[in-house]
Structure formats: C-alpha cells, structure tokens
Amino acid sequence: MKLPQLKIGDLVARVPIVQGGMGVGISLSGLASAVAEEGGIGVIAAAMIGLTSSKPNKSAPEAQSEALADEIRKAKAKTSGIVGVNIMVALTDFAAQVSTSVKEGVDVIFSGAGLPLDLPKYLVDGAKTKLVPIVSSGRAASIICKKWISKFDYIPDAFVVEGPKAGGHLGFHRDQLDDPKFSLESILPEVLGAVKVFEEKTGKTIPVIAAGGIYTGEDICKYIKMGAAGVQLGTRFVATHECDANEKFKQAYVDSTKEDMTVIQSPVGLPGRAIKNDFLDAVSAGKKTPFKCSFKCLKTCQVETTPYCIASALISAQRGKLKYGFAFAGANAYRTQKIVSVKELIAELKAEFEVACPA
C-alpha cells in the first residue's frame, strides 16, 4: 500500500505528512519549502520569527510580521507545493501574525498553545487559507467546532491532535505525560469521535492529523489505520540538511541519548520537552536569575519571576550557541543517527510505510 494523499478542503498533499512548525527559527522557508516540494505540507514557525532576521530592531512587534511575510514569500518562491505557518495562540502578536499570513496567501494556518476560538474572524473575502487548530483532547475539538459554527458559520478545515511525546511546549499537565489515558493512541480516537459529530451535522469532511512522537513509516501506518488522515512530524525534520537551524543544533539531536530527553517547566507556564544540557542544568540548579524583558512575546510568560527568557534561549540554540540556550525535541530525538536530506527522509518513511502497510 502506498502512502495516501492528505486532502484539506481543495488542498491535496501528495504525501500525508505535515512538517511540524518549530520555533524559534528551526522551521523557516528553507525547511518548509523542501517539505512542500516533496509533496508534504511545509510549515514555517511564526514564534518570535523576527529574531531570525538580519534587520535592526528585530524584537519589535512589527519586525515579527515583516519577517513572517518575508519567509512566506521566500518559501513560495521555492516551491509550488503547500506552505503553512504555525501561530501559537499564546503569542502577544497572534492577531498580527494571523492577518499577515492571510494577506500573504499562505495555504494553511496551524494554531495551538491555547484554543484559537476567534481564528476565522481574520479571514478576508477571497481568502483561501485553511484553518487547522491543534488540540490534545476531543473536548477541545468540540469546543472549537461549536464556537466557530455559532460565531462564524465556519467549521475547522482539519485538526491536528498532538500527543504528549511531542517536542517543545506540551498541552498537558506534567503528571499526564506518562499516563496511558493521555497517550496519542488514546486521544486520537477521542478526537475522531468528537469531529465525526460535526462532520455529520455539516456534511463536510474534517481530516484529523496525528502528531507527537511519530518517527517511522510503521508509526504512520499505525495511525492511518486508526483513522488519522495524515501525520505531523517535527523531530525527524530537524536532522535534515534543509532545516533552518545551525549544524550544532542538528548535531545535538544526533549526539543525544535516551537519558538526555527531559521535561522542563517553561517560563511560559507549560511543560516542555527538550534535550538536557549545561544551560538547563544551570536553570535546575538555580544559577539563573530573573532578567529584564525587552519584549513580552508570550501572554503567559511570568517576566518578573522567570529565571531566563525562552525566546533568547531558543534563538541562541538555533544559532548553535547551546551554552546560552537549549534544543526543544520530541521524545524520540535520541533515535536520530545522521543528518539527511528531506528527499531521503520522505523516501525512507514511504518505504517503511509500504512494508508496514502491505496492500
């Protein structure tokens, strides 16, 4: 059996693989366009994207929108494939980033880190941008559907359901991360059930994309057999030549061990999965102290008490300066053996899928 297509409305991805949006600056136009060119959906991460720019005043709010517009244009110039953006609800400039993405004609907006209850209001006449919330429960999917239908007469174009093995900020309490009740295998059927109710009400198809800890073609086969229309992978795409991070960031994945995978309490109030390093050890040991914030990029960040700036730490890591930051990573990052091209990676996933899912 070959990998099926992923259809989101009138968008058709030749392979049902969404490259997860990874910030700060890990997935920009380079990675997103390469994935789109191979038939998947490439995704630019909007979070503090201005910090990746070479322009002055890069932390200013307007710099974020300018940098996002630049990256969308660069990606579209490199591919005729499907390009999306990931915009966290928790961003203080959420509205500006969504409006910029719609104006630039991006194909899909993926939005999590909170419930994007007002996302459809940013669509303008003639906009073809698809709206895809990221959820971690059937209840969240139901709430969004009800709200969008009642307020905007709009149904989500798809959902991403993200389990607790994902990298970066997680939509779970720490004590839920290893609880089988909250595993992707448990929450995927729950979201599928919740979405089915609204498919029947509206007569529209709402594809559900599984995410969080998916690593091989065999994993893809498993979740598609469970009813997912496609999958989202982030960690696998970090160790690619086209990934927009510094080589030292990618090498941190290759060099990591299972014991290096750790869950931190992020300054934004959420647990986050990362690769353990000296910076995080210093945070744990209380060697970092509260700092002055030149920009409040996330609504939930406790600037007065947090020991470090998450945006600064992540952009330092993206630039290869891991002494001053750390790498977010999924639970399976330690399985990374080498850096390959996006083309090689997708070919490998296809071959593994065909073995695991014979016709």
Rank of each mutant, 00 (worst) to 15 (best):
K146D: 15
K147G: 06
W148A: 00
W148T: 02
W148G: 00
I149V: 11
S150Y: 13
K151R: 15
K151Y: 13
K151P: 01
K151E: 15
F152Q: 08
F152I: 04
Y154V: 11
Y154S: 04
D157L: 09
D157S: 10
A158Y: 03
A158F: 10
F159C: 01
V160S: 02
V160R: 08
V161E: 08
V161G: 00
V161P: 03
V161C: 09
E162Y: 10
G163F: 03
K165N: 14
K165Y: 15
K165P: 02
A166T: 01
G167R: 02
G168E: 04
G168Q: 06
G168R: 09
G168V: 02
H169A: 04
L170V: 10
G171L: 07
G171Q: 02
F172W: 01
H173K: 13
H173D: 15
R174L: 14
R174S: 15
R174K: 14
D175A: 03
D175Q: 11
L177H: 03
L177F: 13
D178P: 06
D179Q: 09
D179F: 10
P180E: 05
P180N: 04
K181V: 09
K181E: 14
F182I: 06
E185Y: 12
E185W: 13
E185A: 14
E185Q: 13
S186K: 12
I187F: 11
I187K: 06
L188H: 03
P189Y: 10
P189M: 05
P189N: 14
E190I: 13
E190F: 12
V191H: 10
V191F: 05
V191K: 00
L192G: 00
V195T: 06
V195C: 05
V195S: 05
V195A: 08
V195R: 01
K196E: 15
F198M: 01
F198C: 04
E199C: 08
E199V: 00
K201N: 12
K201L: 15
G203D: 07
G203K: 12
T205L: 10
I206L: 07
P207T: 06
I209T: 03
I209K: 06
A210Q: 09
A211S: 08
G212R: 00
G213L: 08
G213W: 01
I214F: 02
I214N: 08
T216Y: 12
E218F: 06
E218D: 15
E218R: 05
E218A: 14
I220Q: 05
I220N: 00
C221Q: 01
C221A: 15
C221R: 01
K222N: 07
Y223L: 02
K225R: 13
K225D: 11
M226D: 07
M226F: 10
A228E: 07
A229G: 10
G230A: 07
G230Y: 03
V231P: 01
Q232E: 00
Q232D: 07
L233N: 07
G234I: 03
G234K: 05
G234H: 09
G234Y: 05
